[in-house]
């Protein structure tokens, strides 16, 4: 029985973590949060008045930790009222995630309006539609992130047997997914999507920072288009990173060949394998792209 619940928990946790990663990256890109936000912030100063949703709850880790912890805390308290079977966990998680989404919307609206208000010198106008069009999209991704992380926390607590309580697990997952999301997915948004008029194949020089694309496929670009672009690659790689992390961590506990030390040995081997992958990738890119050339 314990083995089955571990197996089931590992599969479920990996799957939920993958989805959470995809949604988290899309959420931060729809709101242009985290590090690329500095570019959206810089744009009006060099004359690029934009129509991006400037959510600016900067520090993705604490922000995501808040959505996940709020959802998980409410769900945790509600399951005590509802009973405690799988169905009540699901319903409680949905209610909790909905509540944390309201908080996300409130913070998002407040920061967009405040940031634009502080842009008076650069003649940036507050367009209501550029706030209200991406907001439901952003909220939807935020809802899904919080829901996935809450369910992940429940499955890590009850199926995988982590001794931490559900809200604390959600807090840890929120911080971790924020750190992973801002360090993988955001590169695609910050260095490719915002700067599509610069050639593919180079980083963005510090001298041109702020010169972001303000026009899109048709008309002015808004933040609804962003997840459509970034989800095809950036979101998936973020999901891959978080999904692999949670999956491998749980998977390493399935074996018992060396007693309590098994999982440590398995993870150490995995760490070495990942290092080899990093090396191979570097060799491949150096061969494929070579030195920087002007063309």
């Amino acid at each position: 029985m314990a083995a089955i619940s571990l197996l089931l928990g590992t599969a479920l946790a990996g799957f939920l973590a993958f989805l959470a990663g995809v949604f988290e990256d899309s959420e931060s890109n729809a709101g242009s949060a985290s590090n690329p936000n500095s570019q959206v912030q810089l744009a009006p100063q060099i004359g690029n008045r934009h129509r991006y949703f400037n959510k600016a709850i900067s520090g993705e880790p604490p922000a995501n930790a808040l959505w996940a912890t709020t959802a998980a805390t409410i769900a945790y308290l509600l399951t005590a009222h509802f009973g405690g079977d799988a169905f009540s966990v699901l319903v409680a998680s949905i209610i909790g995630a909905a509540a944390s989404t309201l908080l996300l919307c409130a913070y998002g609206v407040l920061s967009h309006i405040s940031r634009i208000a502080s842009m008076k010198n650069f003649e940036q106008t507050l367009y209501w539609d550029s706030l209200l069009t991406p907001l439901p999209l952003d909220a939807a991704f935020g809802f899904l992130t919080a829901l996935m992380l809450t369910l992940l926390a429940f499955s890590a607590h009850s199926l995988l047997g982590n001794p931490f309580s559900v809200p604390l697990l959600a807090f840890f997952f929120g911080i971790t997914i924020g750190a992973i999301g801002s360090s993988t997915g955001d590169i695609y948004y910050g260095a490719e999507r915002l700067y599509q008029h610069y050639i593919f194949g180079s980083g963005i020089p510090i001298s041109v920072q702020g010169d972001i694309d303000v026009k899109g496929e048709y008309g002015y670009r808004n933040s609804v288009d962003t997840p459509y672009f970034t989800m095809r690659f950036g979101g998936l790689v973020t999901g891959l990173a978080f999904g692999i992390l949670i999956f491998l961590d749980a998977w390493s506990r399935l074996f018992t060949f060396a007693g309590v030390w098994t999982s440590v040995i398995v993870v150490s081997v995995l760490v070495l394998i990942i290092l080899i992958f990093i090396y191979l990738l570097e060799v491949y890119t150096r061969k494929r792209y070579g030195r920087y050339t002007e063309d």
């Binding site: 194949g201 180079s202 790689v237 150490s268 990942i274």
Partner: peptide, 27 residues
């Protein structure tokens, strides 16, 4: 220690994947 290292190296690997195939530049 190893849990932490696993997280960091996966992040580095995926960051490099992003750089190689999304931006098109070597690390």
């Amino acid at each position: 220690a190893v849990g932490s290292a696993l997280m960091l190296l996966i992040t580095i690997l995926c960051g490099n994947i992003m750089l190689a195939f999304g931006i098109g530049a070597p690390p």
